[in-house]
Design a protein around this nucleic acid. Sequence first.
DNA 1: GGTTAAAATTGATATAGATCAAGGCATTAA
DNA 2: TTAATGCCTTGATCTATATCAATTTTAACC
Lengths: 229, 229
Amino acid sequence: MPENDRKIMSGVNKSVLLETHLFKLLNQAQLQRVVDSTRPVHLCAGQMLFTKGQQANSFYLVVTGYIRLFRSSRDGNEKIIEIVRSGGIFAEAVMFMAQPHYPVNAAAVGDSLLYCFSNKVYLELLCQSQELCFALFGDLCIRLHQLLNEIDRLSLQNARYRVVQYLNDLRSGSDTKVINLDIGKKTIASRLSITPETLSRIFRELVDDGIISISGKRIDIYAPERLKL
Amino acid sequence: MPENDRKIMSGVNKSVLLETHLFKLLNQAQLQRVVDSTRPVHLCAGQMLFTKGQQANSFYLVVTGYIRLFRSSRDGNEKIIEIVRSGGIFAEAVMFMAQPHYPVNAAAVGDSLLYCFSNKVYLELLCQSQELCFALFGDLCIRLHQLLNEIDRLSLQNARYRVVQYLNDLRSGSDTKVINLDIGKKTIASRLSITPETLSRIFRELVDDGIISISGKRIDIYAPERLKL
DNA sequence: GGTTAAAATTGATATAGATCAAGGCATTAA
DNA sequence: TTAATGCCTTGATCTATATCAATTTTAACC
């Protein structure tokens, strides 16, 4: 689906920006500068936002919904690099490329609302604020670590362990014993670099081992202490 | 081997620093500040530089030799994330962590000489220079892309293709038809997330297909155009 | 130059996970 | 209610790569 096929609505919510670490440091004037150059983007479920290789003049914040960032191989396989949830920013590192091109594909998982920020404006602000630069350094540093951990998972950990880690990650924060899978299992599988069949079997294993129970999108954890390898 | 087991020699070569993008922007005074806070580090073949989790107050430049950055799994497997060659910088992103700890292990591949830079000093310089910040942003951006490509390779490409890509990468720059493997095949295998046996078999395949020939560390490329998938 | 140790190769076998194929179970639409 | 569609599950089989074991080659060192 082409990029210009999106519904555009005016109105950018300032307080949403102020909840985000890359914007909360801005003063009134700077924030206004950002707001004026930001446009909301509505995506329908499954709709593409950009494709790998496309010229990159903007980065994004997910306001509602989910964005999957993925790569494809020539033989049609897809690997989801990251699923960006609401509050998450993506493609912000691309603005420092000499020739900015998106390094991944991006598509909405459900209906989603994004804010689209101008690289140019943000680069100007970075020039003005040492503090902002350091906030962004911190952000990039975290991102590097996430990718590093992903490489670790892919090359040193087996499928079952990756699934278990995924569940643990969902759980952390709300340390309840109930997890609600917010995205489809097919999507989760691709995120974990396994097939849906394998994911299903691993879930089955965990159930058979008495560690969890599953009904639809709800997972109950019986033995949190055994929810590792 | 413990960290303090290294031979320390004085003398840091300024011109080496000026060849490095993260230092070439510095003025005389700043450069002197860096030189004064930098110490050379000699490592013997195989010697550890730091381990994952260790507190990080420095980053490094490889002057001569090779450093392998790697992670280990509990069952003793090792995955080399990157092999840093001379001229390369590593661990520079760690300085932006709230609690700086190295995210990987680092060890010398052969006898190696490094320069060890103070995070603190470099952070001070970043505060003084917008230009330097942007140089570093560019650097981090490239690093992110490299990791992204590694994830791509691991999850979407098979072993043979990874080997072929590795050869192509070595070749680019000097577009000759002769490659000299500068590191052991065991190390290359780990870098490509395969076993030495598999690497050996893939090389054999490429030889049998008449694409390359191998004698020791020297690889001759007969059919560059077929050196893909 | 011969001896040891390490690295690389080769073959036989095992296995995690993929692929292929079929059926179940939802949800939406008529 | 039935159909249609898409998602999930389950089983049977296949395959790329790992593992195990034995040998050869290379490098290192008295």
